[in-house]
Design a protein around this nucleic acid. Structure first.
Lengths: 104, 104
DNA sequence: TTTAGTACCTTGTATAACAAGATACTGTGT
DNA sequence: ACACAGTATCTTGTTATACAAGGTACTAAA
């Protein structure tokens, strides 16, 4: 997997997952990993950034399977950021595929 | 335009352009710029990398519209690199769009 | 008690796009 | 002759972000 391809997209994928319901970090890693190889060392700093930017809020919740989980909840500005990134991605990959001659 | 999205893709786009015919740097910048905003400061270092990796060879050719042009020619290994990147991109954007719920 | 699974985190490294410049040639307008 | 736009090359320093490789700590099963 070309790790450069992922630059910027992972933020969109995370916000997209959180649009459905609150998730904890480890859960997000596993969900994305089903389709795209990803490491924890990528997601945790990303979640910190998203919180720093005000796109998500967090709360702790105990687990009976291990240490407490830190849940992330999508804030209003996070929804806006998601919509913005989604539009950018949609036009981007269409443009790329046109340049690659796929006419998709 | 989210500049992070472009990471890694520009190499594929350049190789794809050179599959058609030899081009000089300024020409490549203009071709890509028709669809995706790009700066010269991105392309010239990229071309240097591609040459360093043996994916392209170069030759100079005079121009009657300005200074001499440095043409880039796709080498055998460049064709292989193109095929590899193309496959990676194809699976990548499909996976991303599935995660985004586009089923494309 | 040791291991696997869950769950959090940090540090340092590598990659690549970009802004902002520099250099230099050609042709057009004043 | 001079300035300017267009063509064409390049470099330097900055920024963003993914990753490898670690560490910590809890639970449950072998």
């Amino acid at each position: 997997m070309n790790s450069q391809f992922k630059k910027g997209i992972l933020e969109l994928l995370v916000l997209n997952i959180l649009k459905g319901n609150d998730c904890y970090g480890y859960e997000i890693v596993n969900k994305i990993s089903e389709s795209i190889s990803i490491s924890e060392g990528t997601i945790y700093p990303l979640m910190r950034r998203l919180k720093g930017d005000g796109y998500v809020t967090t709360y702790l919740s105990e687990s009976n399977e291990g240490p407490p989980r830190k849940y992330y909840h999508l804030a209003e500005s996070g929804i806006e950021e998601h919509n913005k990134l989604k539009k950018e991605w949609d036009t981007f990959f269409v443009q790329v595929n046109i340049l690659l001659g796929e006419e998709s």
